[in-house]
Amino acid sequence: MISLKGLSKRYGDRMAVDELTLEVRPGAVTGFLGPNGAGKSTTMRMILGLDRPTAGTALIGGVPYHRIRYPLQKVGALLDARALHPGRSGHAHLVAMARSNGIARGRVAEVLETVGLGEAARKRAGALSLGMSQRLGIACALLGDPEVVMFDEPVNGLDPDGVRWVRHLMRSLADEGRTVFVSSHLMSEMQLTADHLVVLGKGRLILDAPLAEVIARSSLTAVVVRTPHAADLAVRLKAGGVAVERVGENELVATGVAIERVGDLAHEAGIRLHELRTREASLEQAYQELTASSVEYGAQKAGV
């Protein structure tokens, strides 16, 4: 469990993280989203005690990171996979990390096996491809068999197999009851992996909710109705206070309404339906709505 209370970080005159209060619970994958520069990495660094918060606290299982006796056995984190001494092999790096935290040396081979880095771990870290470094970084995070894992953009640079593997890894870590906190810009990936979402915008918490709820709340989640009497039904739905749009000869799209209510209204009016279904917004769409106002470094619109 990670608990943040009023966590803030100021760089110069701008707040990179602004009064962030939230709990990341065990047994679930919590996706950490937000536009570039929103403060995700800064938040993670503060949780790990690498950056000192301007205000507020970050606790892991109730204690600050630096109070944990063998931190790697409690928290595994991948921040920047490239942040390795280029002349040291991944294997040597893991051996040193294991030694510093009283982790059995045998774990090194185990985690290298888990991430699928065999002989490559004997190469100088500088000679690894981005995807291989990413796997090495994940191996390092798993080294101490930690209760809490934190990944900053773990699928960055991974091939499709690797992406799928990370998805399964996060799922199984959460299923084992661990706390999994992962940032990503890949919405399709997050939609498949995350149970819960935390969205930051300009350092502020925009949203802290279950994925299912985020999708359901999106204005793009709608009820699609196909009926030979589309015009009639549209009138009835509007009369019932439902926002509805006719999208084709026989098709209506109603938003902000439960599918049951659409069915009931049609039944009351005696209108035959050929299809009644929910069309879920993608996370990408829901996310775009949420952050439209807080994109810091978005591309300028043409003509502006």
């Binding site: 660094r45 790990l48 005690g49 690498l50 990171y65 630096h66 944990i68 931190p71 790697l72 928290v75 984190a77 921040l79 920047d80 490239r82 942040a83 390795l84 001494h85 280029p86 002349g87 790096h93 990390m97 510093s100 935290n101 390092c140």
Partner: peptide, 18 residues
């Protein structure tokens, strides 16, 4: 200095936060 140049100091401080 090699730790700061590569960024691996963060890894080191994760293992030894004091």
């Amino acid at each position: 200095t090699s730790e700061y140049a590569s960024g691996s100091v963060r890894s080191t401080l994760q293992a030894t936060p004091i």
